[in-house]
């Protein structure tokens, strides 16, 4: 299902087995470095190619973990809209992502169900690939509004159980 402007998906719009739209993007050195600095990760393998190649044995500088997570967050809310609120994610990283790689996000809805507080959760399985190889596997739990008057961002304390 596609969104317009500031619309958000409602829990009832989503069904188990639904595929999320694919997201493709060519990674640049600038975006890798921007992401590292925005997450206060000053380690040289994320901005110094010589260091990355000689000390880490990688092809180039590579995307840091928080930046991969920031891509994940974007991927989920591009699909679900701004009222969707990420509650939790797990991940397992494989190989590095370097400038020049075209990253591809794909995902699938594994489950949609309310919890005891009435918060509706979608469980997603997401893969981040580059060069025809899965680099990172994520699972994520995102709260979706039940209706037009519901806003998961308003939940606090015991009403928020990610």
């Amino acid at each position: 299902m596609a969104l317009k402007d500031h619309d958000s998906l409602l829990a009832g719009d989503v069904s188990t087995g639904e595929e999320l739209p694919e997201l493709r993007h060519e990674v640049s050195a600038t975006s890798v470095i921007l992401g590292a600095l925005a997450s206060r990760d000053w380690r040289p393998m994320h901005h110094d190619r010589d260091f990355a190649q000689q000390r880490n044995g990688t092809r180039d500088i590579f995307m840091n973990t928080p930046n991969q997570a920031a891509w994940l967050e974007r991927y989920i809310t591009d699909w679900a809209g701004p009222r969707a609120r990420l509650g939790r994610y797990k991940f397992r990283m494989g190989d590095s992502i370097c400038p020049g790689d075209t990253i591809v996000f794909t995902g699938r809805v594994e489950d949609v169900a309310p919890d005891d507080t009435g918060c509706h959760w979608a469980t997603l399985n997401i893969e981040l690939s580059a060069n025809d190889q899965v680099k990172t596997r994520f699972s994520a739990r995102v709260a979706l509004p039940a209706d037009d008057n519901d806003n998961p961002w308003a939940r606090r304390g015991d009403d928020w159980r990610p």
Partner: peptide, 25 residues
Amino acid sequence: FTTCASVQNGNPIYWDDAAIADITG
């Protein structure tokens, strides 16, 4: 903004004052 720029995240809850007030307070 730097984080959003690094991944080109246009989610209005980070950029749009009306959405910020309405959704995240």
